[in-house]
Amino acid sequence: MSRARIACLLVGALSSIGCGVSTTPSEVPISEATITVTDLAGREVTLKQPIERIVLIRGRDIYELALLLGEEMRGKLVAWGPDLKAYDRDGYEMFVEAYPWLADVPNIGSIYRDATSVEQILDLNPDLVIVENFMRERSHDSIDRMERAGIPLLFLETANDPLVDPQRSLALLGRILDREDRSREINEFIEARLQEVYSKLDDIEEPSPSVYLEQGARGVATFGWTWTYDSQRRLSCWAAIVGRLPSRNIAVGVVPNLTPVHPEYLLAKDPQLIIFTGANWPTFPDTIRLGYTADPTDARSRLRAYLGRPGWRDLQSVRSGRVHAIFHGFCMHAFNFVALQQLAKWLYPATFADLAPRERLDEFHRRFLPYACQGTWMISLEDKG
Rank of each mutant, 00 (worst) to 15 (best):
R3Y: 13
V11A: 15
G18R: 12
G18P: 11
T23F: 14
E27I: 08
V28S: 10
I30R: 11
E32L: 07
A33R: 15
G42H: 09
K48N: 09
E52A: 12
V55T: 01
L56E: 03
G59I: 03
Y63P: 01
L67Q: 04
R74Y: 04
K76Q: 08
V78M: 06
A79L: 06
G81H: 04
P82H: 07
P82Q: 08
P82N: 04
A86M: 14
Y87A: 07
M94H: 00
V96S: 07
W101C: 10
L102C: 08
V105C: 07
V105H: 09
P106R: 06
G109Y: 14
S110E: 01
T116K: 07
V118G: 01
E119T: 10
Q120C: 08
L122E: 13
N125T: 14
L128D: 12
V131E: 02
M135Q: 13
R136C: 05
S139F: 03
S139H: 13
D141E: 13
I143Y: 08
M146L: 14
I151G: 06
I151E: 04
F155R: 02
F155L: 05
L156F: 09
P162V: 00
P162R: 00
P162A: 04
V164S: 10
L173P: 10
I176V: 15
I176F: 03
E180H: 09
E180R: 15
I190V: 15
V197N: 05
K200M: 12
K200N: 12
L201T: 07
D203K: 15
I204R: 11
E206H: 11
P207I: 00
S208A: 15
G216Q: 06
R218K: 15
R218D: 14
A221H: 15
A221R: 15
T226N: 06
T226Q: 06
T228Y: 03
S231H: 10
R234E: 13
L235F: 05
R248V: 15
A251H: 02
V252G: 02
V255I: 12
P256K: 09
P256A: 10
N257W: 06
P260E: 00
H262D: 14
L267C: 10
L267N: 04
T277G: 11
G278A: 03
P282T: 02
F284G: 00
L290M: 11
P296T: 07
R300S: 04
R304N: 05
G308R: 07
G308A: 06
G308L: 03
V318F: 00
R322I: 01
C331I: 09
A339T: 00
L340N: 08
L343Q: 11
L347N: 02
L347P: 01
D354C: 06
D354S: 14
L355C: 11
A356L: 07
R358H: 12
R360G: 02
R366A: 10
F368K: 02
L369E: 13
P370E: 01
P370R: 02
W377L: 09
M378H: 11
E382W: 10
K384H: 11
